[in-house]
Design a protein around this nucleic acid. Sequence first.
DNA 1: ACCATAGGCAAGTGACTGCTTGCCTATCAA
DNA 2: TTGATAGGCAAGCAGTCACTTGCCTATGGT
Lengths: 102, 102
Amino acid sequence: MVSVMAEEDVFKALADPTRRRILDELAERGGQTLFEICTRLVTKHGLGLSRQAVSQHLAVLESAGLVHARRQGRYKFHDLDTGPLEHITARWLTPDRPESTP
Amino acid sequence: MVSVMAEEDVFKALADPTRRRILDELAERGGQTLFEICTRLVTKHGLGLSRQAVSQHLAVLESAGLVHARRQGRYKFHDLDTGPLEHITARWLTPDRPESTP
DNA sequence: ACCATAGGCAAGTGACTGCTTGCCTATCAA
DNA sequence: TTGATAGGCAAGCAGTCACTTGCCTATGGT
């Protein structure tokens, strides 16, 4: 179960446009490596960023639970997890109140 | 009407926990003034922030389209607008569509 | 063994952000 | 008018963030 604290990480992870682009990429094609993502961001979107920048973004997305990585040999494949995205807006969209005083 | 640029503002507005609390407050009771929101944040949530801090947060929420304000005499009432929240996650969630059918 | 590939760690930097402080304007009541 | 209330504007400060730079480990091919 994703705790309430993780929600903070999800919102912060989504705050950066480059990270949202990375999510776009992984939504379009799962199981990409760091270099693949980096290459695609540069070529397709014309973003000028280094490998380390993407690596750090992936770390943020991973700690937010939005991306899961599996190591295989010297490759590390990344996959999108849309789970944390499902309830974050429901907090305001639903007519009923989420938190009640005990 | 809501351009792609506005989406950036929405995500940035949601990135701050205090602003999310403000949205909670306005979801629970619409048409609150700056002082009401400020008082409630301090008393209910125990947040220690000044009036100006809340004012600036409201400005961010307003420019993101999440809050609309109407002036009436010397009061300014704020209302929540969940419109911008509806499609921001659909970008990754929908292979086709889960919600809003217009 | 060698070396190229795929990725990680950590310090440093410039920009942005949240918040404060101080002063100002506008509206209402006496 | 005077005073109190509701809110706004702008400069300044400290913390955070995104990104770079440089060096390191690990795996696979030859």
